[in-house]
Design a protein around this nucleic acid. Structure first.
Lengths: 150, 150
DNA sequence: GAAAACAGTACCATTTTGGTCCGGTATTGA
DNA sequence: TCAATACCGGACCAAAATGGTACTGTTTTC
């Protein structure tokens, strides 16, 4: 199955938990409890999300995490890229020159195009929409357009 | 990186090779040679593609493989699903009831929506378009729509 | 009936993934 | 000042997935 890693899935859960308390700084323990995930796992996730600049961290007593910017300004693509690196469906969609068949390969352009379209789908879904928890219009529109063109 | 497996990538190369000779039945050896892939690997790919009904196989001397239907009627989604199973970005996008947090999980609907949109992107790209080897309009349109809505 | 070519299955090495733990450092507040 | 809280940065390990290969069987042609 074409899918994101389980940690990426967890990361979206964690991010929505944090987004649900916009005013507070939540400790790893609080987040783990709310997301119903193991504490060390959540700790690892938050570390990566922090490096990507999606959450702010505060050390010391009463420390914890908070969104680095409003939930409307964080997309699913941001979260996926924080966890898995650049979005690209094949090796050669991301790193050029890896594949010695590049010159005569007819499919790399197609894959690059598809990767771009999928990136667009992920950018269209914001954390705020995920928090609202209902199927969102933008992604549905993209589906319909793609299907209409198929 | 969010990506398909290398075998799926190879499968698209193999399929375009076969599609490039619509009138012929090609042996595994011929296809491996043209795709510049190892023969046992190509053999494995063709077996899976055959099970999915994307290629027809012929046994015996002068046997080999041929597209089961025109290249216009085979989508990238068909190939990806043949190699990796149903398209879904998370476990719970495909198999219900796996996750005991389903009831209070706010993100599963969003992931399902995104998975649907990505399926649409993959369905919009046909083997004929990949064979033509140029960036295709439909996928680009989907990107633009998604970005416009973001 | 011999050779060509696909079919099915099993196997193994490598990499990735998921998950855990530990020592270090910054902050707070008594 | 100092102890408690909590994040930081690694390292580490077991389990699963992936990629690749080999072998034996069956079908078809000549």
């Amino acid at each position: 199955m074409l899918r994101v890693s389980r940690l990426t899935d967890y990361a979206t859960v964690v991010m929505t938990c944090i987004a649900a308390h916009p005013a507070d700084v939540l400790s790893t323990a609080q987040i783990a409890d709310e997301a119903r995930l193991e504490l060390p796992t959540v700790s690892k996730l938050l570390k990566l999300l922090g490096h990507a600049g999606l959450v702010e961290s505060f050390r010391g007593v009463n420390g914890g995490y908070r969104l680095a910017r409003p939930a409307e300004a964080i997309s699913l693509a941001d979260i996926v890229e924080a966890m898995e690196g650049p979005i690209g469906m094949t090796e050669c969609s991301v790193a050029q020159g890896q594949c010695d068949r590049q010159s005569q390969c007819g499919v790399s352009d197609s894959w690059r195009s598809v990767s771009g379209a999928i990136g667009g789908v992920l950018r269209a879904m914001t954390l705020a929409q995920m928090l609202a928890g209902r199927p969102t219009a933008p992604a549905k529109d993209a589906t319909q357009v793609a299907q209409a063109n198929a």
